[in-house]
Design a protein around this nucleic acid. Structure first.
Length: 317
RNA sequence: GGCGACGUAGCCAAGUGGUAAGGCAGUGGUCUGCAAAACCAUUAUUCAGCGGUUCAAAUCCGCUCGUCGCCU
């Protein structure tokens, strides 16, 4: 019951790393050197009208090197890992057919995981099902729903902490939509054979001393929180994208939104932005460490990353 | 110079004789269709320092240092 996708057997480059480490700059350098087109792997840069807060590559830079999966949906649309897998695979094939090499760059680990390992089959979870569960959560409480999950899907119930309502609902949603427990879907997928969907992939990672990263995050946060960004957020509000749109909930946008609406002054908002970005970077590092085999390079010696690519391409082409 | 208050983790703090709450920050972790999301775990052999009283002191006493306030 898993998505049957043919593995991609042409070479693919991947560049990961925490936010603000300098992925964009290095990706442009790699693209110039090796003739790449870049696929953005970023859950927020997919949104139009969100440029400053997401630290998007400039239009000028996009003229130099083709970028994919940037500005593809409106800020009130929902994007997810399945859409990413679909879009990224299309982009990879298109780039390869042009004789170029795809370079996937970004910090959204879940998307990469889905691209490499696949997802189990389309669930067709109905919106009503979600709504029912969401209101049941409010009425019955998470304790009750956790007990219920333990009944219908003991493995997932044990795995998911009772406070993790997002996954709690997901577990129940999968069971009631498909009649098959989440854990069973995963088990079947594993039995179907754990082949990678990218057979020739080089995972490069950018890293640096934590203190230095924190300084970079601080500098970027301060440079983001300027009038231009304020105007960008006001523009989003004028277009009718409210507080609950994915755009306004993300890091940076929610901070400036609080500023624009007068809940925070600029200094408070900037401090909160720095703090939340540091935490985000930490979660990213944890994720990459645990889920991916990465050749890490310090930002001081990116030449070694380029050398890695040369070696990889010679071996795989 | 005199008087008074205060000094507990990186920060904010509770605790007035019975063996150091809590929050924030930090750090580590979880993660299969919301991931810039959601969630979990964890941090003081010691309370400014030294000495004393006591079976027992962050708590009481003395001195020293530091901070703040008031007076001169």
């Amino acid at each position: 019951m898993m998505i049957i996708a043919e593995p991609i057997t042409t070479p693919v480059l991947v560049l990961v790393g925490p936010t603000a480490i300098g992925k964009t700059d290095l990706s442009l350098r790699i693209a110039a050197e090796f003739g790449c087109e870049i696929i953005s792997m970023d859950s927020m840069q997919v949104y139009r009208y969100m440029d400053i807060g997401t630290a998007k590559v400039s239009k000028a830079e996009r003229q130099q090197v083709a970028h994919h999966l940037i500005d593809i949906i409106d800020p009130d649309e929902q994007y997810d890992s399945a859409r990413f897998v679909h879009d990224a695979r299309n982009a990879i094939n298109m780039i390869t057919s042009r004789g170029k090499i795809p370079l996937i760059t970004g910090g959204t680990g879940l998307y990469l995981h889905a691209l490499i390992n696949g997802l189990f089959d389309e669930l067709n979870v109905k919106d009503e099902e979600r709504e029912v569960l969401r209101s049941r959560l409010i009425n019955e409480g998470r304790e009750a729903l956790h007990q219920e999950l333990l009944q219908v899907d003991p493995d997932s119930g044990r795995r998911i902490h009772k406070n993790d309502t997002q996954r709690l609902l997901r577990g129940l949603e999968i069971y009631y939509s498909t009649g098959i427990p989440w854990s069973e879907h995963l088990q079947k997928q594993a039995q179907a054979g754990q082949r990678s969907l990218l057979t020739k992939v080089l995972n490069l990672g950018l890293t640096c001393d934590r203190k230095l990263l924190h300084n970079r995050i601080k500098a970027r946060s301060v440079s983001i929180m300027q009038v231009e960004f304020k105007h960008e957020v006001e523009g989003l509000l004028e277009r009718g994208y409210s507080q609950d749109a994915p755009s306004m909930r993300s890091i940076g946008y929610r901070h400036m939104h609080a500023c624009v609406t007068g809940h925070w002054d600029l200094e408070t908002a900037t401090d909160a932005l720095i703090k939340d970005t540091k935490r985000y970077a930490k979660r990213q590092m944890t994720w990459f460490r645990q889920h991916l085999e990465v050749r890490w390079h310090d930002i001081q010696c990116t030449d070694k990353a380029l050398a890695d690519i040369t070696t990889f391409l010679q071996a795989e082409q």
